[in-house]
Amino acid sequence: MTLSFAFDLLLALALLWSAWRSLATPDLTRAVVMFIVFGLLLALAWARLSATDIALAEAAIGAGLTGALLLDALGAWRRAAKDDES
């Protein structure tokens, strides 16, 4: 039960927690933020698996670009909802 196993276990639990939160939170914005956190944690996990290429890609594309897309979509969704009331 070395230190690295403890770290891996912790990271895995954090991953699962952030994934669960991103699906379960009622508020959409927080869900997307949690998803981005999940993406970054996942990048860490890839680093732990000594898959540095994937860590880079996950951080840049998975968390970064997908997060941006989601936030932008959310913004557009909010604006459209606001127009509906007006």
Partner: peptide
Amino acid sequence: YLLWAGAHRPGGAFQAAAVLAGAAV
């Protein structure tokens, strides 16, 4: 750099492209 490093260290086209996309965003 990422593009160049891809040949002998983790990096490569996809990561470099992602960074460029980040710049555009």
